[in-house]
Amino acid sequence: MSIELKNITHIYEPGTPFEAAALNNVSLEIREGEKIGLMGRTGCGKSTLIQIMAGLIKPLNGNVIIDGIDIDEEGYDRTGLRQKLGIVFQYPEVQLFETTAYKDVAFGLKYSDLTPEEKDENIRWAFEITGFDPDKVGSKSPLELSGGEKRRLAIAGVLAVRPKYLILDEPIAGLDPVAREKFLKLLRDLNEEGMTIIMISHNADAIAGFADRTIVMSNGRIEIEGDTKTVFMDRPKADEAGISVSTAGRIAGMLRDRGIDVSEDVMSESELLKELCVHFNNDNRSEDQT
């Protein structure tokens, strides 16, 4: 069970003076249960890539195969695809439109085959996991919520179908650090439950702390791909693709410069913390040995 992209090429407005290449022969496989980070400069094609993955843009060339079936095949069950794959766009709060929050979250379940009870259960789950009390917020107008609440509600609306694959485009842009941490925790929890998560972000800290595997795109191609640590460690390549060092990685580097022995592969905050604990606990002992 996976999402597979095979030789995807896409050009916007082919054959016009406004032609613009977006993707150039991209192949990629995303397995169920993975946490993927997708990075790259603005205009590198990552948004196009996820939209193709979600079947929202038909690529000029190449195939998108989800769970073994080509989504452009005749008679492909698009409604089923919508229940299977959720996508959270940048600033998802714009998609709210219903008169009550409950109805808005329920929108995606309109065409699902679930019974009304099952639907209600899903909706309540979506409210709760995004930190709302469905009984309190459900009857409010989504437009009366605060900015941060609107975003969470919009995400609840995507989660309500309990998608197997969840794609997020810059979900943490504009969130304060506390909200960001909370949100990343939500994604980790969803992943624990078996949801495959693909997240676009410019934020090196978030990707370093979250993704198992990182894909870096540049000029419509996949430039670097591999487990997150390896990608961030390969500085020359990462710098060229515009991927900065994570804050934790930078602090680790500074500590090393000052002679404190921190391992080179520290990327995320938790790793740095662990490393420092080990270091200061062993401090005396290691000095004895040398």
Partner: peptide, 10 residues
């Protein structure tokens, strides 16, 4: 963008 977001929601 709105169109795509709503299509993705079904």
């Amino acid at each position: 963008k709105i169109k795509k977001a709503q299509i993705a929601r079904g």
